[in-house]
Each structure stands twice: as structure tokens, then as C-alpha cells.
Amino acid sequence: MSDPSRLDLLRFLERVQLQQLDQTRRWIAAEEERATAARRTPPPVPDWVIAYQRSGTGPVAEGVHVGGCGMAAGRTEAVTREQALRALTVDAVPACPYCRPDSELGVLES
């Protein structure tokens, strides 16, 4: 068995470098995808949310908030204007004293 020629060694080197180039291109594509995902705009802030707290029987509505209120802690659910009105008037869910959704919705407290 003879030693590989210089040309054989260069062709081997070329194959290795092409494999490395392919791997580098895959890494670049994955990084571009991550960067694109990071630049996507976040979903719009809902107009109204209801914050829930956990209890032994399940989640309990603890307050209605204007969307984006920093006091809406824990699990929140985006709701429509009608759902927010119902929560305040029929279900007696309290309004947040900071963002005052009852004022925004035109509900007067008694």
C-alpha cells in the first residue's frame, strides 16, 4: 500500500473544509432565525384583562384591569369590553383601584 499523493491529501482537505463550511452555514441560518424571532413584535396589549388567583377550588377572579396595568399580577386573561362589564356589574369582580377600569367602562360604583 502506497502513501497518499499530495493531490489525494488536498482533496481530502477540501472535503473536510466543505463539511465545516456546511456546518457553519447551518449555524448561521439557525442564528438568523433566532434573531428574526427576537425582532418580531409582541402581541398587542388587550384592552381589558381579568386577573385570577389560585384557590383550593380553582382560579378565582380577583380583579378587572385595563390592559397593560402593572398591578394585574398572576394569571391574566384578555377579555372583551362586554366581558369586562359583566365581570364588574354581574359577577361583582372588583375593579383595580389603580387603573380604574370601571371609570374607563363608564360603570359608576355605588
Rank of each mutant, 00 (worst) to 15 (best):
R40C: 06
P97H: 09
V60E: 05
P42C: 02
S5P: 02
R15Q: 07
D8P: 00
W48M: 01
Y52V: 03
E104Q: 08
V93G: 08
V45R: 07
R25I: 07
P43V: 09
Q83W: 03
T89A: 12
G63V: 05
Q19L: 10
P97G: 10
E77G: 01
E82G: 05
L7P: 00
V60N: 01
W48C: 04
R6S: 14
G70S: 11
Q53C: 08
V64D: 00
C99F: 03
Y98T: 14
E32S: 06
P43C: 04
R15Y: 01
E62S: 08
R54Q: 15
P44I: 06
G68F: 12
E14I: 02
A92S: 13
A38N: 00
S2E: 11
T89L: 10
G67C: 08
R26D: 13
R6T: 12
Y52M: 04
S103L: 14
V60W: 01
S103A: 09
L10W: 01
R75D: 13
L88T: 07
M71I: 02
A95Y: 05
R100C: 04
V66G: 09
V49I: 08
D91H: 06
P94Y: 08
D3Q: 09
T36P: 00
P101H: 00
V107R: 06
Y52A: 03
I28L: 14
L18H: 10
L9I: 10
D8H: 12
A92N: 15
Q19P: 01
A84I: 03
T36M: 10
A78N: 02
C96R: 04
A78K: 03
P94W: 07
W48S: 09
V90M: 09
C96F: 07
A29S: 11
G68N: 06
D22A: 14
M1V: 12
C69M: 10
M71H: 13
V64C: 05
D91R: 05
D8F: 04
C96W: 05
R86N: 10
L9K: 12
Q23K: 13
A78S: 15
G63D: 00
L10T: 03
A84H: 07
R54N: 14
L9S: 02
D102Y: 00
I28K: 13
R39S: 13
A78G: 11
P44Y: 00
L105Y: 10
I28P: 04
D91P: 03
D91N: 08
V60P: 00
S2Q: 12
